[in-house]
Design a protein around this nucleic acid. Structure first.
Length: 103
DNA sequence: AGTAAGGCGGGCA
DNA sequence: GTGCCCGCCTTAC
């Protein structure tokens, strides 16, 4: 078991709460952990995501609706989202606000 | 122990 | 809508 920091663990848990077909933002996650300005830290935690399939890190997008980045490639991220019913256009989530899941 | 980098956010011109 | 700045938090080497 690697040294999972509280922060990381918190993010991972929150990610698992995200229902399929929905997306959240780094800012929301940061806010959920009590650090609304820790969006970067969130991205970092998610990036090191130990259980990629178990933790829907691909369901995390930027605050402006952009896909953001992905350790395996944004294309892969979009692919996964599309499979879950999330439509992505030109690197941005369609109806982002509508499928945005907030804690 | 200190430094660098990171899958960002928000505000302003 | 675009571009630029700074700020914020954490992890890893």
């Amino acid at each position: 078991m690697k040294t999972f920091t509280e922060f990381e663990q918190r993010i991972l848990v929150l990610l698992t709460m995200i229902p399929p077909g929905k997306v959240t933002t780094y800012g929301e996650l940061a806010r959920a952990v009590g650090r609304p300005k820790a969006a970067r830290a969130v991205g970092n935690a998610v990036n090191k995501n130990p259980d990629a399939p178990a933790v829907p890190c691909h369901r995390v997008v930027k605050s402006n609706g952009e896909i953001g980045g992905y350790a395996g490639g944004t294309a892969q991220k979009v692919k996964f989202l599309a499979k879950e019913g999330v439509v992505v256009e030109n690197g941005r989530v369609k109806d982002f606000k509508k499928i945005l899941f907030t804690f």
